[in-house]
Amino acid sequence: MVIEEELKSGQLKNSYLLFGEENYLKIYYKNRLKSAIIGEDDVNFSYFEGKGIDVDEVIAIAETLPFFAEKRCIIVENSEWFLNGNEKMGGYIENLPETTCLIFIEGEKIDKRKKLYKKLSLLGTSCECKRMEPRKLRDWTRALMGRMGKNIRATDLDLFLSYVGNDLQHITTEVEKLVAYIGEAQVIERSDIEDITTVSVENKIFDMLSAIVQKKIGVAMHYYEDLLILREPPMRILSLLSKQFNQLLQVRQMQGMDKYSIGNAMNLQPYIAEKLMRQASAFSKEELQRILNGCLDMEMRVKTGLMPEQIAVELLIMSKEQIKG
Rank of each mutant, 00 (worst) to 15 (best):
E4N: 11
T304A: 04
A154F: 00
V76H: 05
L25E: 09
S261T: 14
Q186W: 03
A62C: 09
A220P: 03
E49Q: 14
L296H: 07
V187P: 06
N203I: 01
E287A: 12
Q244C: 01
M318Y: 00
M235Y: 05
E70V: 01
G10N: 10
K216T: 01
N203R: 10
K303M: 00
Q279D: 12
T173V: 15
R113I: 00
R135G: 00
K71Y: 14
K303G: 05
I27G: 11
R131M: 13
L241V: 03
I110V: 15
A220M: 01
G263H: 02
A211G: 05
F45V: 04
S162W: 02
V58Q: 07
L7E: 07
L178N: 06
G20C: 04
D192K: 09
S79D: 12
Q310D: 02
L137P: 05
L7C: 11
K71F: 04
P134S: 07
E133T: 00
I272G: 01
L161F: 13
E106W: 07
E77Y: 08
M235E: 12
L249F: 10
E80R: 14
S9V: 10
L159C: 12
K118D: 03
I37P: 07
E299L: 08
L276C: 03
K112I: 13
F48R: 07
K34R: 15
G325I: 12
M307R: 07
D42H: 12
L83G: 06
V164T: 11
D139N: 14
L240F: 05
D139P: 00
V251E: 03
S200W: 05
L296A: 09
P234Q: 06
P97H: 04
A312N: 04
L178T: 10
A211P: 01
I171G: 06
F45C: 02
K71E: 12
E232W: 00
N166F: 04
I262M: 13
E22G: 09
R153W: 10
A69R: 09
E174I: 11
N293Q: 15
E49A: 14
Y47V: 08
L248S: 05
Q255H: 14
L230M: 08
Q279S: 09
I38T: 08
L116D: 02
I53M: 10
I93V: 15
S242M: 11
I205W: 01
V199C: 05
E94Y: 06
